[in-house]
C-alpha cells in the first residue's frame, strides 16, 4: 500500500458516500444516472468475484464489501424507493449502457493477462469501469444545471483513478516487474474521459459560478 493508492481508495469511498448522502438525506437522485450506477454494480460484482476465495487483507476485503454494498444500495434506492425514484429523470437518462458491455466483454475475451474465467471477468470489469461514467456525463450535458453534490460525486469519482495512476507509476519504479499494461491503459482512458468535466468543474469553482457543461 502507498499513499497514492490510499488517497485513491479514500477518494473513491468519498464519492460513493457523497452520493449515498445525497440520496439518503435529501431523498433525491436528480441528475444522477441510474445507468452508470447499474454499470458500477456489474463492475464490482465482476471485479470482486474472488472476495471469498482470495484474502489479501482486512482493509481489502472491507473496502470490497463497502463498494459492493454501496453500489447495490444506490441502485436499489433509485429503482425501488418511491420518494427517490420519483426524482429520477428517466427521459434524459437514455444511454444504451448494455451496448457498452458488449465491446468490453469482447475485448476482455481478446486482450487479457491469462485466459481463465476469473481473469477474463476481472479484465472485463476494468474495461467496463473505464466507460461506466459515460451515461452520467451524457446526462450531465442534457440536464445542464448540476447540483453541488452530483458535481462533487463526479469530481471525486474521476479523481480516484487519477490517484491510482500515480500509484501505478510509484509501484512501477519501486517494485521490480510490476507491469500491468491492461490496468494502466484502461485506468488512463477512464481518467481522460473526465478531462472536460474537470475543466468545467475547475472553471465553475474559479469563477464561483454554477457548474454548466456546454450543450
Amino acid at each position: 500500500m502507498n499513499i497514492f493508492r490510499l488517497a485513491g481508495d479514500m477518494t473513491h469511498l468519498a464519492s460513493v458516500l457523497v452520493l449515498l448522502l445525497k440520496i439518503h438525506t435529501i431523498k433525491s437522485c436528480a441528475g444522477v444516472s441510474l445507468k452508470t450506477q447499474e454499470l458500477y454494480v456489474i463492475v464490482f460484482a465482476t471485479r470482486y468475484l474472488d472476495i471469498f476465495t482470495s484474502f489479501v487483507s482486512i482493509y481489502n476485503s472491507l473496502m470490497k464489501l463497502i463498494f459492493l454494498g454501496s453500489s447495490f444500495s444506490i441502485v436499489w434506492y433509485m429503482r425501488y424507493h418511491k420518494a427517490v425514484h420519483r426524482t429520477y429523470d428517466r427521459e434524459q437518462d437514455t444511454f444504451r449502457h448494455w451496448f457498452l458491455m458488449l465491446p468490453c466483454i469482447l475485448l476482455a475475451l481478446l486482450i487479457h493477462e491469462k485466459f481463465t474465467f476469473f481473469e477474463v471477468m476481472w479484465t472485463f470489469s476494468l474495461y467496463l469501469e473505464a466507460v461506466a461514467i459515460l451515461p452520467q456525463l451524457v446526462l450531465l450535458q442534457r440536464t445542464r444545471n448540476i447540483d453541488n453534490l452530483t458535481g462533487q460525486y463526479i469530481f471525486l469519482l474521476g479523481g480516484y483513478r487519477g490517484f491510482y495512476i500515480l500509484n501505478w507509476i510509484y509501484r512501477y519504479f519501486t517494485e521490480p516487474h510490476y507491469v500491468h499494461w491492461i490496468t494502466w491503459i484502461s485506468g488512463l482512458v477512464q481518467t481522460l474521459l473526465y478531462a472536460d468535466f474537470f475543466y468545467y468543474y475547475f472553471l465553475s469553482w474559479k469563477n464561483n459560478k454554477k457548474l454548466q457543461l456546454p450543450a
Partner: peptide, 10 residues
Amino acid sequence: SPETDSKDEL
C-alpha cells in the same frame, strides 16, 4: 507471484 500483486488493488 505476478498473480497476487495485480489483485491486491481494489
